[in-house]
Amino acid sequence: MDAFVNLIALTLAAGTPLALAALGELVTEKSGVLNLGVEGMMTVGAVAAFIVAVNTHSPWLGIAAGAAAAAVLALVFAFIVLSLMANQVATGLALSLFGIGLASFVGRDYVAKVIDGLPALHLPVLSDLPIVGALFFSYSPIIYLTLALFALTQWVLTRTRAGLIVRAVGESPPAAHAIGLPVIRVRYLCVLFGGLCSGLAGAYLAVAYTPLWAEGMIAGRGWIAVALVVFATWKPWRALAGAYLFGFVTLAQFQVQAWGTAISPQFLSMLPYLATIVVLTLISRNALTVRLNAPVSLGKPFHPGD
């Protein structure tokens, strides 16, 4: 039983950064903007969070700084693709390359530093309950925050006027513009939300999950998150399930290594990336699934004056 509870805890922890980043990208894409800079924003979020956490000794301030730093990058991206109407694929790539370069530049003095990570939740009586306490009341606060964000996003997207506006803007910007919706402003906000979530995901990795800063520590999680959005066919709950599934795959790699099998660690490390390819292929195989669910205007620039 303990092993099972432990496995659940590890899966949630490993899946959370993917879930957060995927949620942000999902909302961004719902508004019709494809931001391939998730990897860069997560990296900057991680380094900013770590630097602030080291200097202030406050993991919470670090997490706030990580989210804010990534949000600033997201705004730069939004300005270039929304106000200057640049190609979204190329600009997203630029954001990833820039973010990774920026992070290793500012983080060079922090590589070997150690911090006290964000402590896990501890409620007086509840957390001490046998099994139930470990299973429900003793994770990192960010894990609960992630679940709350998913519930909130699901509700806003499907049940509120704001969600309807976001979806309208993503499906048909000319129509949304024609009925007086501020297309560009809505897209700015969605990109900003994506940035905040990516930053939070990176910050969680640097301040709570590992906790440390190293170049390349995001290790493609941002790209996997982008793939998860397709896998989830733009539905928040499926993205959450997908993120935990991938969290489990990353874990399986350590688990198998612990059993001392003859498989080289490098081949086990390939698993999450290979799994991403397989999952992406399976979901894309059915053209209708993707076409029916993808926001119609995804990746296409819109200029209200045209």
Partner: peptide
């Protein structure tokens, strides 16, 4: 300086280029 500054310059160059490209069509 850390050699990572190369990556910073590379990313900034592409970012600025894509922004400046707006004047091709507008």
């Amino acid at each position: 300086l850390p050699s990572a500054i190369t990556g910073l310059f590379q990313g900034a160059l592409l970012f600025l280029l894509l922004g400046a490209d707006v004047f091709i069509r507008y």
